[in-house]
Design a protein around this nucleic acid. Sequence first.
DNA 1: TCCAGTCTCTTGAACCTTCAATGAAAATGC
DNA 2: GCATTTTCATTGAAGGTTCAAGAGACTGGA
Lengths: 153, 153
Amino acid sequence: MSDEAPWLDDEEMAAWLPLIGLVMRLPGALDQSLRSDVGLSHFEYGVLAVLEQAEEQTMRMSDLAYLCNGSLSRLSHVARRLEDDGHLRRYACPTDGRSTLATLTDGGRELLKNAAPGHVRTVRSLIFDEFSRDEVRVLGDMAKRIVARIQTS
Amino acid sequence: MSDEAPWLDDEEMAAWLPLIGLVMRLPGALDQSLRSDVGLSHFEYGVLAVLEQAEEQTMRMSDLAYLCNGSLSRLSHVARRLEDDGHLRRYACPTDGRSTLATLTDGGRELLKNAAPGHVRTVRSLIFDEFSRDEVRVLGDMAKRIVARIQTS
DNA sequence: TCCAGTCTCTTGAACCTTCAATGAAAATGC
DNA sequence: GCATTTTCATTGAAGGTTCAAGAGACTGGA
């Protein structure tokens, strides 16, 4: 464990500061381009994008929240707005009365189709244009290991 | 540039999803431990920590905002709250009437001293306990390259 | 069957961030 | 000098997130 080592040494700090910069700045950068392109936040885009990949383009709220890296409460508020705007629909799960299923509407699919190209350009220009194939794999692998630690903490 | 390539291929997606997971989950994880320990958000902690490292523990608001990876407006609101709570003080810059200088108070220094050990433990357990020395350097380097792209985009 | 405990989701309030507008001071250009 | 533009910071409103509470539905053991 990490019970000793009161502070970060220089090498650690030299990695920590950029990492914090990344996690604090990337969401804003993604928000900004999606917001100006199609009026969605990155989280809203993620909700629609995850739904599109799902079986029947339908998913339980809790599963959706997990895959979107957000709390159920956050998703619930966002889903209400997306529903008001006609991008998704919610209905009671027929087999488990506690659950709510969310499904993509035609309008939501359309919006996603309009949003995707610009979003991909943004992601490429910020990430994938910078790194080699090997680096991308290493980066993804490291991110996965950190996420695993966050989830079990 | 990235004008072609309509969507991410499997390898890219396999890196992108964990990276998004990281940037969406890490701030919340840091917030949570700092909030329960000393009642600070990670951004507030960052403001105090950056100030502590500064000359005279004093810094111009815009420089502080930049180093804290936040907007000036965000910093201004946060600084008002931190000032109300006695953790920092603001005063007009004597040499440039447009600028405001923020300085750490004794109370802020004390709070930081109480917050740091727990925060470092959190950071170590999420990041540095997972990676080798070499990996840490690679991770920091990659983060730095992405931040550079965000800033010039 | 009953009921206490758990799971799923929503809600409203508190809080925080963003955005646009504003004001004041300094720099620039004529 | 004077007007214009730019820089620095704050503010209030609008909108989003978090947190705690609560309603409804399932589960398992008595």
